[in-house]
Nucleic acid binder design. Structure first.
Ligand SMILES: [Mn+2]
Ligand SMILES: [Mn+2]
Length: 323
DNA sequence: GGTTGAT
DNA sequence: ATCAACCAACGCGTG
DNA sequence: CACGCG
């Protein structure tokens, strides 16, 4: 039987009838067909941006891949960037066309994460992103409530954004930024928006980076900034049912759940439209007062990392001097 | 998924 | 030739 | 280099 293999746009596609991953309730063919069906919508989200993917192979645990493998065809675009963490050059793929998208699909790349800067202008963040993460055992309606807090905080600063499910458990709000603005100013403005939203309903939402300090509240995550990556709109996720990150109309927030949108179910919702592009407002200038307030807010991560060091030190001391 | 090293 | 083992990540701030 | 978190 050759029916499990085919060639599309010159790209070999293999094992199409295999399950995509455990609990995907979808085949590799479903992934390929989905990505090909939304290519005109997802490619603009990936275009020109260093790409990271999450792959699932042969039942192994999913892994993130940043460096483009040596065996990748030479026609795949890439940009090399110095990685401070590993002190080496990492060749990030740039996915600008259907062939590259199909090649990654055949690699079982499920998730497509991109940087908030382009390869061409690595010092200019194109969007401010508010990431909303529910607590364990969440109800999605708390995420919806938090999204409304962010929307209000933005509106209070004369800003507006577009909202999508992350495909996992939370939501993402994107505000296109009129530049050029230093990355650290966008990061500061992000912190300020999160802090203002938290103030609107401190019983519902928190900006505490340390999980233990969140007390069951929704996390308004302001760390999707600078060199961070965010899963692209329309990207599938390695989650039960193979859901996809999907745009939501602000007026329909109460009517949706992340699992409504999967690689197998959204075909009918697409038609020929591009809801993410259609709902994205024009680029906006970030108000100075927002940026200034943000610079007065300590970066949440720092406290968390100090706490981590403290615990590690304590653990080493306990190992050195057993009671 | 692809490559490498041992049978 | 077959096959099991192995690989596939970063940023952020600080000390 | 590792820490917490995504
Ligand atoms: Mn999130
Ligand atoms: Mn997050």
């Amino acid at each position: 039987m050759m029916s499990s293999d085919e060639t599309r746009d010159g790209v070999s596609l293999t094992n199409l009838d295999q399950p995509l991953f455990e609990e995907a309730d979808a085949t590799k063919r479903d992934l390929v067909d989905y990505l090909d069906a939304v290519r005109d919508r997802i490619l603009p989200q990936l275009r020109g941006r260093p790409l990271s993917v999450v792959r699932t192979v042969r039942g192994q645990a999913p892994f993130m891949q940043k460096n483009l493998p040596k065996y990748a065809p030479s026609w795949i675009e890439s940009v090399s960037m110095w990685a401070e963490a590993s002190r080496r050059e990492v060749a990030y793929a740039i996915c600008n066309d259907r062939r590259t998208l199909l090649w990654f699909a055949n690699q079982r790349a499920i998730e497509y994460h991109v940087t908030l800067v382009t390869a061409e202008h690595p010092d200019q963040q194109t969007h401010m992103v508010l990431d909303i993460d529910p607590p364990e055992g969440d109800r999605f309606d708390t995420v919806v409530g938090a999204a409304r807090l962010i929307r209000q905080a933005l509106a209070d600063s004369g800003l507006s954004g577009a909202v999508k499910t992350s495909g996992a458990k939370g939501m993402h709000i994107f505000v296109p930024v009129q530049g050029p603005v230093p990355i650290e100013d966008v990061a500061a403005a992000t912190r300020a928006v999160a802090a203002r939203a938290e103030r609107l309903d401190p019983a519902l939402a928190t900006t505490a980076y340390i999980r233990e300090d969140r007390n069951g509240k929704v996390f308004l995550d302001s760390t999707r900034a600078g060199g961070a990556t965010v899963v692209a709109a329309y990207s599938p996720r390695v989650r039960p049912g193979a859901p996809v990150s999907w745009p939501v109309d602000w007026e329909h927030l109460d009517d949706v759940h992340p699992r409504d949108f999967t690689v197998r179910t959204v075909a009918g919702l697409i038609r020929d439209g591009d809801p993410w592009a259609e709902q994205m407002p024009h680029a906006q200038r970030l108000p100075v007062d927002l940026i200034e307030e943000g610079h007065t807010i300590p970066v949440a991560r720092v406290q968390a990392m100090h706490e981590g060091k403290r615990r590690a030190r304590a653990a080493r001391a306990a190992a050195d001097e057993p009671s």
